[in-house]
Every structure is written in C-alpha cells, then in structure tokens.
Design a protein around this nucleic acid. Structure first.
Lengths: 329, 329
DNA sequence: TTGTATGCGTTATCAT
DNA sequence: ATGATAACGCATACAA
C-alpha cells in the first residue's frame, strides 16, 4: 500500500495524499476527510525509509554500548530508547564490545544506516580510534556520549563526577572511624581512572595518603571481587574499609567476607559504585555511589533530539553522583 | 558520496560502480580495480535505506521486549543482536512494556520501518492483541518468539519447558527430604502459569498434592519476595522449602530468612528461576532453574535469518531447562 | 486547491 | 563489458 494506491482509490493525485499525511495546509476539507478515511481503512503507514531518502533524515539513532547485559548500560539504553521514541526516533542498538576496532566497525555500520545521530554509552568509547572514526564518518551529525567526553565539534558529553563521588565515599568511611581504606579497581576505562583519582583525593583530604592501598583486578566481575577480597584479607589484615569501583566487585568482596565471618561493617566496611540492583539485593545491602544513570540517559537523549532540531546545546555537562547509604557502612 | 560521484571520478557509469560494489560478474579487472580504489579512497559505503527501497529488504530486524532492564531480556537481546549482525542485519530494539496496547503500537512502528522480521522476547507477547496486530501488519514477514508461541502461519516459537523444570525442582527438594513445598509466583504471564503447572505436577508425582501452597504476589520484584516470605513464615511456619518463579523474588525471600535467622537450606530451602547473576551473587547462592536464555536467543536468531533466506523451519521448538544446584538446597 | 514532474541513492533490465 | 533508463515510495517545487 503506497500513496499512489491511496490516491487512486480516492480519485486524487499522490501529492494530495502526501499533503494530507503530513498535515500540509491548502487542502479542501472534503478531500482531506476522504483521503483520511482511506488511510485508516487500508491501515496505511508511510515507509519511513523512503521518507528518509527524500528528507535526508532517517529518524534513526544509533546507540553504541560495550555490552547491553551490563545493567549499567541497559538502564541507560532503556531511558534513552523511550525518550527518543517520544520524538519519533527509533533506536538502532549495537553491542560493540570493549575492543576499539569493533567500536569503529560499529560506527561504520551506523554510517551506512544513515542514522541521524549517535549515542555512545560508557567511557569505554573515549579513545582515539573511536574519535578518528567519528571524525571521518560522522562529522556532520550529533554524537552524544553518556558518561564520557570527546573533543569533537559535533560531540556532546554528559559526565558524572565519579571522582567527587569516590571522594565522598572516603569522607563517609572516615566519618565512620575508618582509617585504613583500600580501593579495588579494574583500570580498564577512563572512568576507572577518575574513580582512582577520587580515592586519592579523599585520602589526601584526610591526611591518609600514606595508607593508600590500591588492588588492581583483571575485570569488573564478581570473581574480581573474590580476587580482590582474598588479596585484601590475606596481605592486608589491617584494612578496615574497602571501596570497590563497581557494585559487582563489592558483591564478590562481601561474599568472601561473609564466608570468612568478617563482620560488616564493623570489621570491614564496603562501598560500591553504580547503585545497581545488586547493591539493593545484596545481604547485607551495599552502600553505593549513585552515578545517575537514568538522569544521564535522559539528559543525553534530550540533548541529542534538541541538537537534531537545531538548538544550541552545551558540549559538556557534569552531573553529580550521590551516596546511597545502606548496611555495609 | 554516492555511486554517481564515484562513477564520475572513475570515468564510468553508476551501474558499473554498483556492479563492482555488489561483486557482480562481467567487469573488466582493470575497471574493477580502479573503482575499488576510489571506493576505498573516499570511504564510500552504500546507503542501506536506498538499497532497501529497491531491494524490498531493509536488513532491519525489530526486537520487541517488555523491558531491556530485565536481565533476562537483555541477555537474550545481546545474543540475538550479535547473531543477527553476523548476517548483516541491524536490530531495532523497542521497549514495549507490559501493556498489550503499547506492544501493538510498537508493532506499528516496526511496520513503518519496514523491518524484514520481528523477534518477540518473552511470553508476555503471547496475547490476542499482539496476535491481531501481527496478523494485520506482519503477515508476510517471519515473527520469532523467544520463550513463547503464537499460532500464526508466519510465527515461530522457541519455548523453554519451564513446567518440566519446576517439576524437576520439586523432585530435587523432595530428594532433600522436603515435604512442605510452597510456590511464590506472580501470575502475570503465560510462562508463570506453565511454572505453576510444573509445581502441581511435581507435588502430584510425590503424592504431595494435599500440601499445595501457592502464594501470589503483585510483581516479580525483590519486594514481592519480601511479601511472599513474610506471608510464608507468618502464616505457614511448617513450610520447609519454597520455589520462587523468578530469582529476584528468591533473593527477597532469602533476605527475609537471613534477617529472621532462619537457616538455609536446613530450615528452609529456596529455589529460583532464570539462572541470573542475582542467583550467583546471592548469599547464600541460589539453586535455580537455567531456562537457557542464551541458547533460546541464539536459536531464535538463527531461525529468523534462516526463514529470511527462504529455508523451511519448524514452527515450534522446545528447549529443556536444567537445574543449577547451589547453596540454597 | 490540486496535479505534474523531479529527485533522493540504489539496483535491475535492457540495450549496445 | 558497460551504459542508459526505469523503478522503489515519498516529498516538494512549480504549474495550473
């Protein structure tokens, strides 16, 4: 069913049908009604792709993330997709993994699909290869990055001040009397370095820099939590608090502590990051940094659609994370 | 950059360029090389939408799910998106929520986008409104349902035998000496009724039908687990095991039991469903039904692409769930 | 107020 | 082996 079919049945030309569909003025009410009736009757919906061809706008947005199974990413994707849909955009979601080469490949796919804009989810996309690919293939379209920033004229970044957030965590632990505070982290993303700096800031603020204890782990999984916890209790029994760069790792730590019958939070306090469901459901429940994924996603989506409708928008926005205190502190 | 631009630079016609791009035979090697060099040089990629217009195939697949934040759904979406991409398809992911009307609306959007096929994730889509909408708007395109089935000539369903799975759970609990086995469930989806029947099957098998104890809860959240657990320990102190229709509810139950100092699994055994990360990270870790989300997704995606390339495929496939025994039994 | 003609980027058919 | 042309479904400038 095309506008030509409808036109024929209505006894008008295709352009008239097109005008009715797009609510253009200058159509006799009677004609409009007649056409609209046919439109309903035949369940007609315009072909968005054909529209895109002439309008030079597909109403398609590419959403790139490392892995949608990461609750962090899926939460963001959820709000972004919903918001974009309100404005008539459809979301092309691609799992690009953590390899910059695969990210570049995904950007190529999105170029080919002629998306109107791109949303990058996660600071993992903050790398040279992605930047180069965007510069070459997406220089004329808005690129919004959730939780990161790229220095491109058409790029916009919504950042969460995780550095400050981790500093807050140190404050909290300090106020609880903790003085030997460790930090478990996988240094795989720019964001993890931000957190590391926040940890150092916090220690410095309280004159604890000498006590710095960073435990690097291979991933951000619960197993990495196990590894980190074992190293902690094995080599550094004096530690009385630990900040984990992700809730999942905190979960692993807690499990080991539970198994070893180390009392939480009296003997060992634990802080996580992400305010994920994991933190809520853990026993004991985890004090965690809320890095505002929903707000970030909402704002990122809003900036994208605003840019798409020609508005001027700031290229860098900073959101502040807040601590959610639960049972582990 | 279009094929005309490339053609001009190469001193050939657009058709020749098109032939080179699509590896059609009957092109002089020299011409082919010259064109290919230009293609690389200008970073040319064909416009998939324009292609779709003439090919009558967009290489777009619509993936419909209630909520991508549900780990169950995101895991499936992940494998599906990856598999589809291998075959050159792009995934349009829509969160349709749990309202049939919104699901129908989403199907309309996908029709408008001229997707080549649809993947429905979750038995929530197994309802009359969705069926009607598919019949009206998608009768000529393959529709694959992960974890459910629709009786449409163009529909394919990958089902997981959760009924049998829950029956297995009862077997396990019985073998552990449990005789008062309760079942906590939110009866919101067809799948939940399957599980209920499995519970009844299991009881019947062991002559325990008299002991049937079903606790209905309002949602499938951890809070529903709280509610179920409180009702359980409050009104039915004799119960020695409970099967929860979702891991998240099992998590809630475990938390309450922990707080009340009820020993798991000796005083009360717990079984969940989904084999989610939640079950792994819980303390104690949850014995759960693995309902094979990755396998289901992989198979669903494969069937979709096979149908799209004209192959005949079975309309109904059943996968079997397996029990993952952990600390709660 | 409405119709005709054209073009968007591509592939396919028919010539040559 | 290659080019001209039509067609896909739609929107729009221009004509009437």
């Amino acid at each position: 069913m095309t506008i030509y079919d409808i036109a024929e049945k209505a006894g008008v030309s295709a352009s008239t049908v097109s005008r009715v569909i797009n609510n253009k003025p200058g159509i006799k009410a009677a004609t409009r009604d007649k056409v609209q009736k046919l439109l309903k009757e035949y369940n007609y919906t315009p072909d968005e792709n054909a529209r895109g061809l002439v309008n030079k706008a597909t109403k398609l947005i590419g959403i790139l993330m490392a892995d949608i199974r990461n609750s962090h990413h899926s939460e963001l994707a959820y709000v972004v997709e919903k918001k974009l849909r309100e404005y008539g955009y459809c979301s092309l979601i691609l799992n690009a993994g953590y390899e910059p080469k695969m990210m570049a490949e995904s950007i190529r796919i999105l170029e080919q699909r002629k998306v109107d804009g791109i949303m990058l989810v996660g600071s993992a996309f903050q790398n040279d290869i992605v930047e180069k690919e965007l510069r070459e293939r997406m220089s004329d379209k808005p690129v919004v990055m959730a939780n990161g920033y790229l220095d491109l004229p058409n790029a916009y970044g919504i950042l969460v001040d995780e550095r400050d957030g981790i500093r807050q965590s140190v404050d909290l632990l300090y106020s609880k009397g903790k003085r030997k505070i460790a930090f478990i982290v996988n240094l795989g993303t720019p964001s993890s370095y931000e957190k590391l700096h926040g940890y150092e800031d916090g220690l410095a603020k309280h004159g604890l820099s000498e006590e710095k204890m960073i435990i690097e782990v291979p991933e951000t999984t619960i197993e990495s939590g196990f590894i980190g916890a074992r190293e902690l209790v094995g080599k550094h029994p004096e530690v009385d608090a630990v900040i984990c760069a992700e809730d999942l790792m905190a979960l692993g730590v807690i499990r080991i502590l539970n198994e070893l019958n180390i009392k939480i939070p009296t003997q060992m306090a634990v802080v996580g990051v992400n305010n994920s469901v994991y933190g809520e459901v853990s026993f004991p429940s985890i004090t965690t940094l809320d890095n505002k994924m929903s707000e970030t996603g909402l704002m990122a989506a809003q900036i994208l659609v605003d840019c798409l409708s020609g508005e001027e928008k700031p290229h860098k926005i900073m959101l502040f994370s807040t601590l959610v205190e639960r049972e582990t502190t």
